[in-house]
């Protein structure tokens, strides 16, 4: 924290701390449960593992009420625009946990339909390995996220301004001609799939390091 800037002065940093403390202890998760991991999310909420102990038990299925999205399960081509739309509908500040191998990297499903990691198309804060992860791992991820919120959060979300691109690996762009594209790319902005809207998928394969 720079002391010279008025926004980062004593008052502001204290305000950040208070805001972070409030936010981290009242995360409202939205379980974007698609597959097996969704059952483990349910198990985490059920009596034995009881996520209520960590202040994150208020599962809401409306994105407008939530600030933590738990993507549990694989996301396929048909589902990704829905996921992005729901992410856009969530109010700031918001965080995302990618739960399980499938959401994080495609897992065992290296097939034509499955998106190979949601972090190519969405910003993700915490990844959980496992297929599916144990409920304890999900709880640990929530704790880690609380830690992250406390350490890096700001009350007016300044920290997000520096993150101007997805933090995960960029899509492995295959440079296809229009004629070879079998699926028109979906666009979360228009909620449509059409041939006229083509995303600018540059050749990021070199810089992604994958």
């Amino acid at each position: 924290m720079e002391v010279s800037l008025p926004e980062d002065g004593f008052l502001v940093t204290k305000l950040d701390e208070v805001a972070n403390w409030c936010r981290k202890n009242s995360l409202w998760p939205m379980a974007f449960a698609t597959a097996c991991c969704g059952i483990e999310v349910m198990a985490t909420g059920a009596s034995r593992h009881d996520i209520a102990r960590f202040g994150a038990e208020a599962f809401r299925f409306s994105p407008r009420q939530c600030d933590l999205m738990i993507v549990a399960g694989r996301v396929v081509m048909k589902m990704l625009p829905v996921l992005q739309r729901i992410w856009m509908q969530m109010p700031e500040p918001k965080w995302c946990i990618s739960m399980g191998a499938c959401a994080s990297s495609g897992g065992v499903f290296d097939t034509y339909a499955v998106v190979q990691g949601i972090d190519r198309f969405l910003p993700v804060d915490v990844y959980i390995p496992g297929c599916p992860p144990r409920p304890e791992q999900l709880i640990q991820a929530v704790l880690d996220l609380q830690d992250k919120v406390q350490k890096t959060g700001t009350f007016n979300a300044r920290e997000f301004k520096s993150r101007t691109r997805p933090e995960g690996p960029r899509p492995l762009a295959m440079q296809l001609d229009m004629a070879d594209q079998m699926v028109a790319p979906a666009n979360y902005r228009t909620a449509t799939r059409s041939w006229s809207v083509v995303p600018e998928v540059g050749n990021h394969a070199g810089e992604s390091g994958r």
């Binding site: 339909a113 910003p123 301004k161 993150r163 101007t164 997805p166 762009a173 296809l176 079998m182």
Partner: peptide
């Protein structure tokens, strides 16, 4: 979708359709 994925001449990993989406950055979402 234009292909039929269970045909033998369709590759297991597809023709690249799974990579064609708009990436969302943190500052714009």
């Amino acid at each position: 979708f234009a292909g039929h994925p269970l045909r033998k001449d369709y590759p297991l990993r597809g023709m690249g359709e799974r990579h064609h989406f708009v990436p969302l950055a943190r500052d714009e979402s």
